[in-house]
Design a protein around this nucleic acid. Structure first.
Length: 882
DNA sequence: CCGATCACG
DNA sequence: ACGTACGTGATCGGC
């Protein structure tokens, strides 16, 4: 059966325009809507495979179904110039693609589509109608499907409606839907509707009577009194609205369905235009031969031992290869790229054993050949390198780390991302190579051709990206950060992950049980207070109970309802002591689910947790911790801190915990060169008290507790990129007072004010900020038109050099500690890093040596104008040592 | 799959 | 007039 697809051109273009961020080609022509339109069009073509395709456009924008109602009420918003200029562009492109467009003077695109769909339906065709809004739902039938594309997070999904789906959603048939719309009205379509009848009422009436006319005749039976009088009083209005709402299915369209044959759309003319528009990712589609196939043709599978032997022999003379190792924990195959058009896949099979492949990989690792891979840390079980063998001459290159340094804001650094961003080529993503399994089909991961392509793309990109990424690192002055910090660090992180940290599982379990008892008690007390059971963990339900049923005051916030955050509840606590129970309940359930239960899942057979330490996540250069997050284990509250007692050293060991004292403020002192702050640190003053003394103009020994803690909050605020509002929130004071604090702070430390202003200025000029060691963070927000975003960018510009430099210093310290431990053949190991803290599982006979190593390397990691102060403590669990 | 909440630095 | 402190990750409920 043949299929006819009809598209509402303006409505899709409109949707594309608002769904895709504004951008232009190099001539300054806006192209985002055209781009989005094409993406929807391609999805439509791939999914529906039309035999006939036509795209209908309104002749004028805005247009109205009936001239006489033109000025009925208001007018449509005029089209933005950025969108208007794209209308002729898409029409020209469609013309070049041999796609039929229809414009009918005096009629809307809706009418054209209504007419064409009727003709197609009557001819027994399957019809699909694509539109950005729901106006066309009345056309739905068992043969006509209305499709509404939605762009979410770059992915377009399509909602599809036939008769059944319309009934399900609106409780009326598509034809009845006209009457619903006529009753309720639609301001965007200038349909007045009946005043007093809304969506609910309209649906009820039509559900019961089937049409406006029938409802009018049986008006006495309308149960809702308001609706009844409204309909009787405004029946003329309802009838007029119905005329307006009805799509004309007999308009004088001259185009015949046969004129809309869908074929030969990827023409040479269209390709030229795509190039002119600079839609690089679409070029493959238009040039007929896809780039993918070009590469896939050069992927070679090697499964014969003699061929494998020959390949490895050949590699002895190579000076650079791209490598990809396939398999989760167990290697099941590898890909090697040694030239642009020579990519090999070697599955583990027969005589080509895992051991054989590992042997040869290590052989290359130990040669001078550069091996470009995507994640050294994840593959180091095979490379088997330690930090001692890795300096700036390392022959292992990590494209993921390189790409992260160049743009730390990206979410993923997968082969297709790198190919797109640095090689200018579009490759199929992992999801495209391994599409979601359909029921009863063989898993795409078991189809060897998919696996070969996936592995070879990885190896190919690793190979080709090496030169580009290395030049970029050198260009951006980040080669030092890359080779002296990140690459050695990756081995330190590998060592930490491999080592893991020991947990006492029984004690963790007991802790969980203890919490559970208390939770049950609190739960009951809360239900009693509320009068009934509900889900305390649901902010929605909790909000309704507190502010609705129980009538607690104020408390409005957030889009979805009442805010029930701790800061809101704490304000209520003095007057309503019962909310304390909610806060306690929250605390306990958090501890139970995230920590007691959450951590238990990760304990391995060796009684240790081997969490991941991620190197390519944060914008500032910090390390992140996942599966589980070991960097947010409770410490501030006594009950939470208990958890740290189950983190223990193994036999014959203790924990040494070393942390930097106020590293960020010291970095601020150094970078700003502020005399007062530097002097305070050089004289080992209590820095918060010293700040209080300066800001509040009191002698150092007369600073009160409150003054000191306020000054501490200001110090934090400065590091975060101070704002008077933020500070006022933190200290629960007025914005005015906060402003005064900040003002006085800057008067006390003029060097800091100067430095922060300069940080912002420099970041604005360059588009990024830089740490002491040259690490960069782009700040696109500084160029934003939106005031708030720009303000955010300014705070980021103040904070990231500080936070980033602290991260750099800690990384350097870790590298040097790790090196010295290994160089001296010590068995003690770093097990955790928590931003300014290192936890070392230390053998008892190595305690004093390790302590010295920690202090020396952490304090000596950077040479600042103020001393770096490190505090080391010893303990038999993490709590004791901290 | 997103937003709210809360744990850490 | 707006509506905000910087950087993370896990869990939960609800759409």
């Amino acid at each position: 059966m043949s299929k006819l697809v009809l598209v509402d051109g303006h409505s899709i273009l409109n949707r594309a325009f608002y769904g895709v961020p504004l951008f232009t080609n190099s001539e300054g022509l806006h192209t985002n809507a055209v781009f989005g339109f094409l993406n929807i069009l391609f999805k439509l073509i791939d999914d529906e495979k039309p035999d006939y395709l036509a795209i209908a456009f309104d002749v004028h924008q805005p247009t109205f179904r009936h001239e006489m109602f033109k000025d009925y009420k208001g007018t449509r918003k005029p089209m933005l110039p950025e969108l208007r200029e794209q209308v002729p562009v898409i029409k020209e492109l469609l013309h070049k693609m041999n796609i039929t467009t229809i414009e009918l003077p005096g009629f809307e695109a809706d009418d054209v589509i209504g007419t064409m769909s009727k003709i197609g339906e009557d001819a027994g065709m399957d019809v699909c109608v694509f539109s950005g809004d729901r106006d066309l739902l009345q056309l739905a039938s068992d043969k006509v499907m209305i499709c509404i594309p939605k762009t979410k997070k770059g992915q377009t999904t399509v909602e599809k409606y036939k008769t059944e789906e319309v009934k399900e959603l609106y409780k009326v048939t598509p034809v009845e839907f006209i009457d619903v719309k006529a009753l309720m009205g639609d301001s965007s379509d200038n349909i007045p509707g009946v005043p007093g009848i809304g969506e609910k009422g309209a649906t009820n009436i039509i559900e019961q009577f089937g049409s406006i006319e029938n409802a009018y005749e049986h008006a006495e039976e309308i149960s809702n009194k308001r609706n009844k009088t409204a309909l009787l009083e405004h029946y003329d209005m309802a009838q007029m609205s119905k005329v307006l709402a009805t799509i004309n299915r007999k308009s004088p369209v001259e185009t015949k369905i046969e004129d809309c044959v869908f074929e030969d759309i990827y023409t040479a003319d269209a390709l030229d235009m795509i190039k002119h528009l600079e839609f690089k990712s679409m070029i493959p589609r238009f040039s007929g031969v896809t780039l993918e196939n070009k590469y896939e043709d050069s992927f070679v599978k090697i499964s014969q031992p003699d061929k494998a032997e020959e390949l490895f022999n050949n590699l002895k003379s190579a000076d650079k290869i791209g490598l990809y190792i396939y398999g989760n924990n167990d290697i099941t195959g590898i890909s090697i790229c040694k030239e642009d058009d020579a990519v090999y896949f070697l599955p583990v099979f027969g005589l080509i054993t895992k051991e054989y492949l590992i042997f040869h990989i290590r052989d290359i690792v130990n040669s001078n050949c550069i091996i470009s891979v995507a994640n050294i840390k994840e593959n180091n079980d095979i490379f088997n390198k330690t930090i001692l063998e890795n300096d700036e001459n390392s022959n292992l290159f990590d494209v993921e780390i390189a790409a992260y340094l160049i743009n730390p804001l990206s979410n993923t650094y997968l082969y297709d991302d790198i190919a797109r961003d640095y090689l200018g080529i579009t490759l199929p993503s992992m999801e495209e190579i391994f599409p979601k399994v359909k029921k009863g089909e063989v898993s795409p991961y078991e189809i060897e051709e998919n696996v070969i392509n996936y592995c070879c793309y990885n190896a190919l990109v690793n190979y080709k990206a090496y030169d580009v990424l290395k030049s970029k690192l050198i260009e951006t002055d980040m080669w030092d950060v890359y080779s002296n910090i990140e690459i050695p660090l990756t081995y330190a992180l590998y060592s930490m992950e491999k080592c893991g940290i020991m947990i006492k599982p029984e004690e963790l379990k007991e802790y969980g049980n203890r919490l559970n008892g208390d939770i049950k008690i609190l739960e009951k007390e809360i239900y009693d207070e509320a009068g009934h059971d509900f889900n305390i963990n649901s902010p929605k339900q909790l909000g309704e109970i507190l502010f609705g049923e129980m009538g607690l005051p104020g408390g409005k916030k957030t889009k979805t309802g009442y805010s029930t955050s701790a800061s809101v509840l704490e304000k209520l606590e003095p007057e309503y002591p019962f909310v304390r129970k909610i806060l306690e309940y929250r605390q306990l359930t958090k501890l139970k689910s995230t920590y007691a239960d959450g951590l238990a899942v990760y304990i391995g057979d060796d009684s240790r947790i081997h969490g991941k330490f991620n190197q390519t996540i944060t914008a500032t250069g910090r390390i992140s911790s996942t599966e589980p997050n070991l960097q947010n284990i409770p410490v501030r509250m006594a009950l939470g801190r208990e958890i740290r007692k189950v983190f223990v050293p193994k036999d014959d060991c203790v924990f040494l915990d070393a942390d930097y004292s106020q590293i960020e403020l010291r970095i601020l002192a150094h970078m700003s060169d502020d005399e007062n702050l530097i002097e305070a640190y050089r004289e080992s003053k209590d820095i918060h008290a010293a700040t209080a003394s300066l800001v509040f103009h009191v002698p150092l020994d007369e600073v009160t507790k409150t003054q000191r803690s306020n000054a501490k909050a200001v110090n934090f605020g400065i590091v975060y990129g101070i704002s008077s509002f933020g500070l006022s929130q933190d200290l629960s004071i007025s914005k005015k007072e906060a402003e005064k604090y900040i003002d006085d702070y800057f008067k006390s430390y003029p060097g800091i004010k100067n430095y922060l202003d300069n940080s912002v200025k420099e970041a604005k000029e360059k588009g990024y900020s830089t740490t002491m060691f040259g690490r960069r963070r782009p700040i696109p927000e500084l160029k934003a038109g939106n005031f708030m975003q720009r303000q955010f960018g300014e705070r980021v510009a103040m904070n990231s050099p500080i936070q980033g430099t602290a991260a750099d210093i800690m990384k350097i310290a870790m590298i040097n500690v790790e090196r010295e431990l290994r160089k001296n053949n010590l068995k003690s190991r770093i097990v955790l890093q928590v931003h300014d803290e290192l936890l070392v599982e230390t053998y008892k006979d190595e305690i004093s040596t390790v302590q010295d190593i920690l202090v020396k390397n952490m304090e000596g990691a950077a040479n600042l104008h103020v001393p770096l102060d490190v505090d080391v403590k010893e303990g038999n669990n993490w709590d004791e040592a901290h």
